[in-house]
Computed example of a mutant assay.
Amino acid sequence: MKKLLFLLVFLMVVSCAEKVVEEPDNLIPKEKMVDILHDLAILNATKTTVGAKLDESDIDVMEFLYKKYQIDSTQFSESDLYYASLPLEYQTIYTEVETRLDKWQKAMEEATEKKNDSIRKANEKRSDSIRSAKTPTDSIIPEP
């Protein structure tokens, strides 16, 4: 049993060491791939929340990304497949994407909190001014 386990571990180590997919000629650099996947995650989230607006505007998420990063679908597919064939590289790419998304989410939450605070303060100020307007300071009817 130990020999079988050793053989399986050995085969996995050896098979992971060889390249499954050859590096494409037009490989998207790792940093750019992180940028693309980050934007893709945000756009897909946007699509699930306001997809009708994107459809009305005739915006295709992938076409938008291809134009923005000056790549084509083949280049993106080949690069994604290549990085996926290297599990450690792919993991570092997605870890960086996740880190960026977390930072972006925190920034959005802080911006929303600031906006809510300013709205709350404006509402309090308005309520105070309404309250002071309703409180009579001078009586219209003179006292006898």
Rank of each mutant, 00 (worst) to 15 (best):
M1E: 01
L11N: 11
S132R: 13
L88G: 11
F64C: 07
K32L: 13
Q91V: 14
I36D: 04
A41S: 07
F76V: 04
D128W: 00
K121Q: 15
I59V: 07
I140Y: 13
A45I: 00
E56L: 03
V20Q: 08
Q91G: 08
P29E: 06
L11Q: 12
L101C: 00
W104V: 10
M33W: 01
K67M: 03
A52P: 05
Q75G: 08
N116I: 12
K3N: 10
A17M: 12
W104L: 13
V61P: 08
G51N: 02
E124Y: 00
D128L: 04
P144K: 02
D138Y: 00
K53Y: 05
K115R: 11
N44W: 10
L8Y: 03
M1Q: 08
M12L: 15
L88H: 07
L81C: 08
K115Q: 07
K19V: 11
T74V: 01
Y82W: 06
S129E: 10
V21M: 15
D138C: 04
K47V: 10
Q105T: 07
M62L: 01
T137N: 10
S132V: 05
D60W: 06
L65W: 10
T48R: 03
I119S: 03
A133R: 04
T92E: 01
L8H: 12
L7K: 07
A107S: 02
D25I: 14
S73N: 05
K19N: 09
K114P: 02
A111V: 09
S129Q: 10
E109T: 04
Y83G: 01
Y83L: 09
I130Q: 09
T46P: 01
T135L: 13
K3I: 10
R126E: 13
V20E: 12
I42E: 08
Y94I: 08
T48D: 13
K106W: 03
A17C: 15
S139I: 06
D39V: 03
A17E: 14
F76Y: 03
I130S: 01
K30C: 04
I141L: 12
E78G: 12
